[in-house]
């Protein structure tokens, strides 16, 4: 169980072992990478996991190339497959019907919500949100993204995203990422967390970098190591 769920059940707010998390954030902030890794982590713990690709602007590009691989790890992946999208045209921009009903599935649900603020509105299209009080919406932030590179910019951006339950510091510079880069993000995201009163759920980093940082970052946030899948996907 992660830190946040422990706090919640400890406080008696929501007694639910089911984990439902939606990952939102600035375009190219690393939502998919964080969501995929989270789904894998839960799956490895022997949980029943549904990973849902909810990018309605550019669907079928993100998870499609790694869908089979993720499924072989034991999870259910709700995303278009190449053969399903042939004939749909440019971006096949139609929500996969089963994604819309994903919250009614048994087991954990990890939602990868693509495409920034417009993507965050996708949550309105989901069925069963009201019946899923355990749903947590996490904003993924990379302070090396130019639109979210300062505390005031991040605050402005989060306001646009709508309700958020937790923050994820996913600060990186691709192959050039160092622990210092990640910790610069940790400081900024933690400051945002204090201002907004929204917890930092985790700092995420590539395995090598995560190893150097340790189990907690400089601000005391738990570190989630990431296996990088996205360089193998299209967008």
């Amino acid at each position: 169980m992660d830190k946040l769920s422990q706090q919640k059940s400890g406080g008696g707010c929501t007694i639910s072992k089911r984990i439902v998390e939606a990952y939102v954030g600035e375009y190219a902030s690393g939502k998919s990478e964080v969501a995929v890794n989270r789904a894998l982590e839960l799956s490895r713990d022997g949980r029943k996991v549904n990973l849902v690709d909810l990018d309605i602007v550019e669907p079928c590009y993100t998870l499609r190339p790694i869908k089979k691989e993720l499924e072989s790890a034991g999870m259910t992946v709700l995303a278009w497959e190449t053969r399903d999208t042939i004939g749909l045209g440019e971006a096949g921009n139609i929500i996969k019907p089963e994604c819309r009903w994903a919250l009614y599935r048994e087991g954990d649900v990890i939602l990868d919500i693509g495409y920034g603020v417009e993507g965050a509105k996708t949550l309105n299209l989901l069925e069963g949100v009201d019946e899923t009080p355990e749903m947590q919406i996490f904003a993924v932030i990379n302070v090396k993204r130019p639109m979210t590179s300062t505390v005031p910019e991040i605050l402005d951006y989060i306001k646009e995203l709508g309700p958020i339950d937790g923050l994820i510091n996913n600060t990186h510079l691709g192959d050039e990422t160092t622990p210092e880069v990640v910790e610069e993000g940790a400081r900024m995201v933690t400051e945002v967390s204090k201002i907004l009163g929204i917890p930092v759920v985790a700092t995420t980093a590539d395995q090598e970098v995560a190893k150097k940082i340790g189990q907690q970052d400089v601000m005391g946030n738990p570190v989630r190591p990431l296996t990088r899948f996205m360089p193998r996907t299209f967008w």
């Binding site: 375009y27 190219a28 990379n142 090396k144 993204r145 130019p146 590179s149 990186h172 510079l173 691709g174 050039e176």
Partner: peptide
């Protein structure tokens, strides 16, 4: 100078 992680389209807009 600022090192940033970006998509190509954003780079064009910033340029």
């Amino acid at each position: 100078e600022k090192r940033a992680f970006m998509t190509g389209n954003e780079v064009v807009a910033w340029a």
